[in-house]
C-alpha cells in the first residue's frame, strides 16, 4: 500500500494549482467555498488563509470505499472508523478500544491492513478502502469469510471482522503464508475468546480457496 500510495503521488508529478493530493489544504479551500455558497460551516468567516478550518467545521471529502466513491462532510479530527460506522452506517467495521490496541476496526487501505481508528478520515482520501462489506461476492461470503465459517474461527465474533480483514490483507501480499507468518499477520488483532487456533486454520483454508484449490461447499 505504502508503495502504491507513493507511486500515485509520484505519478501526479508537479502539477500546477491545487491537486487532489492536497486534500487537506484543498479541503480547506473547499470549506471556504462552501462558506460562501451554502451555510454548511456557519459562524466561520472566510479567513485570509483558505486552509484554515475552524473547530467543528466540516470539510468535503471523497472516500473510495469498496470501489464506490462516497462524498462526505467530515470534521478533520474524525477517525476513519467513526466515519465508516457513524456517518456511512457501515457497521461491519467494529470499534473495540478506539486506541489502536484491539484490531476490531481493521480495514484495508490500498490493500494493506490498517487500524481505521488510528487513521484520520482525511488521510484516507485518494486511497482504496476495503471494509468487511467489500469482501462479499454478491450475496455470497468472500473466501476469508467462508473459511472462518467453515473452521468456526470465533466464539463471540466481535473481533472477527478485524481478523478477517487482517487475513485478507495478509493473503493479498502472501498467498501461501506459514504458521509463523499467519501469527504475525494477525498479531495486531486481539481475540478475547482465544479462537486463535481456528483463526490460523481458517487462514490456511482461505489461502486454498483463494488459490482456487478449495472445494467450496
Amino acid at each position: 500500500m505504502e508503495d502504491n500510495h507513493r507511486k500515485k503521488q509520484q505519478q501526479k508529478g508537479p502539477e500546477s494549482g491545487v491537486t487532489r493530493r492536497h486534500f487537506l489544504t484543498g479541503a480547506g479551500i473547499g470549506a471556504a467555498g462552501l462558506v460562501a455558497g451554502a451555510p454548511v460551516a456557519t459562524g466561520a468567516a472566510p479567513t485570509e488563509s483558505a486552509a484554515i478550518i475552524e473547530v467543528g467545521e466540516m470539510v468535503p471529502l471523497t472516500l473510495r470505499i469498496n470501489g464506490h466513491p462516497r462524498l462526505l462532510l467530515v470534521e478533520p479530527r474524525w477517525s476513519l472508523a467513526y466515519v465508516l460506522r457513524e456517518k456511512l452506517v457501515m457497521t461491519g467495521t467494529k470499534l473495540g478500544c478506539d486506541r489502536g490496541e484491539c484490531g476490531a476496526c481493521t480495514v484495508l487501505v490500498d490493500g494493506v491492513p490498517r487500524y481505521s481508528c488510528m487513521t484520520l478520515a482525511l488521510e484516507a482520501e485518494e486511497t482504496e478502502i476495503t471494509t468487511l462489506e467489500g469482501l462479499l461476492e454478491g450475496e455470497d461470503l468472500g473466501d476469508v469469510q467462508q473459511a472462518f465459517k467453515e473452521h468456526d474461527a470465533f466464539q463471540c465474533g466481535y473481533c472477527t471482522p478485524g481478523q478477517v480483514m487482517s487475513v485478507e490483507g495478509l493473503l493479498r501480499s502472501n498467498p501461501d503464508p506459514s504458521l509463523d507468518e499467519i501469527r504475525l499477520g494477525v498479531s495486531g488483532n486481539l481475540c478475547r475468546c482465544g479462537a486463535y487456533p481456528n483463526i490460523f486454520k481458517a487462514t490456511r483454508r482461505a489461502a486454498e480457496l483463494k488459490r482456487g484449490k478449495g472445494d467450496r461447499s
Binding site: 493530493r21 473547530v55 479530527r77 474524525w78 477517525s79 486506541r99 487513521t119 488521510e123
Partner: peptide, 24 residues
C-alpha cells in the same frame, strides 16, 4: 503515522491548533 495522536480521545483533538501530515 498518527499512532500516538489517535490514542487520545477524539475530544482531545478538538484542542489541536492543527495538523501537518508529513507522510507525503
Amino acid at each position: 503515522g498518527c499512532t500516538d495522536l489517535m490514542v487520545g480521545e477524539p475530544e482531545d483533538r478538538l484542542g489541536l491548533p492543527g495538523v501537518l501530515d508529513l507522510r507525503g
